[in-house]
């Protein structure tokens, strides 16, 4: 128990450090001391606006999305008993991307891009769940396959829109690859409550998830209503992911590798793994966002590109290590 609290404490410090770093780095570099005085409201100047109106909401957005993706990824990997599962596996991302693409193509404005991608993301997950439970109990295997099929179906429409509307390709691609450059307080203010409440609801089921990982039939015999727990977790996880994607676009790998790294560090018990993974995901995402706006300054790289560049090799390394019987 003592060691567990220490782990949480350390990763919390990491997150705070990343957030301060992210707020400090940019076109104008601001020192920790200045950031401190601005945050406690003891300074009124140009730096204050940069921090409070631009960098802070963006950083908070990145931290919260990273947290959400890691938490949902942890749950989905356990729930679907598949190490390759991530928050997007049931098609949320494809639905959200289609929603956003439609809003972009029809010039509906940023609010509708967010709204439509959120709604479509949730709808697609419902659809996947509905299709896979048509004949009795839904098997996780069927759900993953249906998710893959629905995803490619949705992405074929996105490609079609991109083909028809050449002039908006850049905007669509930027959205699909993910970026926090457009995140302000309004985006944070609607997504943060959904994400935090959703993550908390999911956390309440972490002990049930432990049992489900040891087999669905056994979990059932330990008094857990697996079908109900699964429904709650899939639904909540999809809503959380959709609200994330509606803010930042599709940022890959955070929801896939963070749970794995965290599992290596703190073990499989979801009661500790979930919060640890969440804080870790937040730190990783903030770091990726810092890199996305600094590597080719003053231009910005989509944050999804950064997470993939660092995430994919690390994931391969992890895979090799596990294969060798580590």
């Amino acid at each position: 128990m003592y060691r567990r609290r220490l782990y949480i404490f350390l990763v919390l410090i990491l997150l705070v450090f990343m957030i301060l770093l992210s707020v400090g780095i940019g076109s104008v570099d601001i020192g920790f001391k200045d950031i401190f005085w601005i945050l406690v409201g003891k300074r009124e100047d140009r730096l204050r606006d940069i921090i409070l109106l631009i960098r802070l909401p963006r950083t908070i957005g990145a931290a919260i999305c990273g947290m959400a993706l890691a938490v949902v990824g942890t749950f989905f990997q356990g729930l679907l008993r598949n190490p390759m599962a991530d928050p997007y596996i049931l098609g949320v991302s494809s639905g959200s991307a289609l929603g956003a693409t439609i809003a972009i193509v029809f010039n509906m404005g940023i609010v509708f891009v967010n709204l439509l991608s959120f709604v479509m993301g949730v709808l697609v997950t419902f659809f996947v769940y509905f299709i896979s439970s048509l004949n009795g109990r839904s098997s996780t295997y069927t759900m993953i396959l249906v998710g893959v099929a629905v995803s490619s179906f949705a992405f074929s429409f996105i490609s079609l829109f991109m083909f028809i509307k050449h002039e908006q390709i850049a905007q669509i691609v930027m959205w699909i690859m993910g970026s926090f450059s457009l995140v302000g307080w309004s985006e944070v203010s609607y997504s943060a409550p959904i994400i935090i409440a959703g993550s908390f609801i999911m956390y309440l089921f972490s002990r049930d998830l432990n049992a489900i990982i040891t087999g669905e039939e056994s979990a059932e015999h330990l008094g857990i209503d697996v079908e109900v727990v699964r429904r709650i977790l899939l639904f909540t996880g999809s809503v959380v992911t959709a609200s994330c994607v509606s803010v930042s676009g599709i940022v890959g790998f955070v929801g896939l590798i963070t749970p794995h790294i965290s599992r290596l560090l703190v073990g499989p018990d979801n009661r500790i793994l979930v919060p640890f993974s969440g804080l870790m995901g937040g730190s990783f995402m903030v770091l990726a966002d810092i890199l996305s706006r600094t590597v080719i300054k003053p231009a910005e790289v989509p944050v999804g590109v950064i997470t993939a560049i660092f995430g994919a090799p690390f994931f391969l390394y992890l895979l090799m290590r596990v294969r060798r019987g580590e």
């Binding site: 432990n210 990982i213 040891t214 087999g215 039939e217 056994s218």
Partner: peptide
């Protein structure tokens, strides 16, 4: 029911670190 009946399933799962 889970306090009345214990069940040891046929295929036990063990591919995790618990």
């Amino acid at each position: 029911r889970a306090r009345l009946i214990g069940y040891v399933p046929q295929d036990i799962v063990y591919d995790f670190d618990f």
